[in-house]
Design a protein around this nucleic acid. Structure first.
Lengths: 150, 150
DNA sequence: CTTGTTGCAAACTTTTTGCATACAC
DNA sequence: GTGTATGCAAAAAGTTTGCAACAAG
């Protein structure tokens, strides 16, 4: 398992490079990280690694199924390891809490989409936005309240 | 109803401007459009409208609940009118078909997330990626196949 | 008139690309 | 040695901001 990534890389004709190892490890350690965060982490170990290498590598690793990405904010995508077993995400627009949920929870929906819409959903990429029951939908958008016209 | 937007704008202390009217109409007509597409559409009617105005206006219109946005691709967000009743989206990674689905379909999931995770989901923003049953998950990523190492 | 809005231009953030060099195999 | 992968720098894509001029109410 630990060498799974080596096998997959080589098996697909890719080369094993220290950059790729560092980047994969960074993703695994960070949990859910944006390309930029991965880059920062990697640079802690090796100054010279370039952002473009991070982007290119994340793409390769995802293609090989070693990592996945999801959109946990309206901004940058976040990558996470696939060794933590498959899950989807709940994101609170208010407190920004991210909850990983077991795929079981959406089996019914999944089935229904398949039968009624001939659609096979991608659980791992799924992110559901909303708000914690106790967070209140009101302050839905962080601290910005632009117009306060009564 | 047709004047709903006028009421909401004025009622929140915003002014009624031709730009805002054009932009709202463009969103309604286009269905699901990126800020750039909205901008292009608006310019067909009025040359001078600036992109920054489009961004600022989309933000205002969404704040007022007149439009919503969803992420139908890994790239730019798309805005759509809210007058077409609430729905969520299915996006095929393969053929890029976008299907609007009735909220009823996820009532069960919605309930379960609320009870089990104290989470209230935002149906309108929900986008589920996957692939059409007949599209096949294989060619999942359009025409790119970078490495074809046997 | 008063203040929200707009256009413009420039800055910013995030991601991509071309190319020469370096290194995995 | 051969060809992939990397670093670098510049470009592209998408979005935001400051500010003076404009216009809605």
């Amino acid at each position: 398992m630990t060498d799974d990534w080596r096998v997959k890389l080589r098996g697909s004709g890719y080369r094993l490079t220290p950059q790729r190892e560092l980047i994969l490890r960074a993703v695994e350690e960070l949990g859910h990280a944006t390309p930029d965060e991965v880059h920062a982490r990697v640079r802690e170990q090796s100054e010279a690694v370039n952002v473009s290498t991070v982007y290119r590598t994340l793409e390769v690793l995802e293609e090989l199924g070693l990592i996945r990405h999801a959109h946990l904010s309206d901004r940058a995508p976040t990558y996470h390891s696939v060794t933590d077993h498959e899950h989807f995400h709940l994101v609170c627009r208010n407190c920004h809490r991210v909850t990983s949920v077991d795929p079981d929870v959406i089996t019914l929906l999944s089935d229904r989409l398949r039968t009624d819409h001939d659609f096979v959903l991608d659980v791992g990429h799924l992110t559901i936005f909303g708000h914690c029951a106790d967070c209140g939908p009101a302050a839905a958008d962080e601290t910005k309240e632009k117009h306060s016209h009564a």
